[in-house]
Amino acid sequence: MAIIPLERKPLSLAERTYLPAILSGLKTTFARLLRPIETMEYPEQRPAIPPGYRGVPTLVKDPNGREKCVSCQLCEFVCPPKAIRITPGEIPADAPTAQVEKAPQAFEIDMLRCIYCGLCQEVCPEEAIFLQNQYSMSGYTRAEMVNHKDRLYELGGTLPDPHLKWDKKKAAAEHGNTH
């Protein structure tokens, strides 16, 4: 890389007194003084969350109320600060969603570690984890800052599912190419 020496232009007498610069600065700040306030008074006023905002990661259910996560642990794998911890579990064979076979026994996201990067949402093959609108997350203890499975579903709610792949799988098992 070449170094380009730049000649500094000599300052004029007026510039060397800095007075014009200070006066223009005073003008700027005084003009500001008269302008309306820019900030938002936070707890009363809330910002409008733009689409695509990456808030607190949450788990979602599909419109039929099925928990979408199958505990494949890809989010746990991809999570850069290792905030996610999943204990996989099996869905019993007599459950209504037995065709899914696998669901998380425990799902914890440590919000003290989470960096809101959204890689978990990106990597999820089941579209089960979403970073939604929740931007304010606080607690009094470290333990409070760990979101457990129930809380994650509570935060996540239900999102529309255009695929319903497991329902299709069940339908195929019931009416499909069986023998």
Binding site: F30, R32, L33, E41
Partner: peptide, 10 residues
């Protein structure tokens, strides 16, 4: 107050 107003704060 003056500093706040100059910085666009309440």
């Amino acid at each position: 107050k003056v500093s706040a107003w100059m910085q666009g704060r309440p």
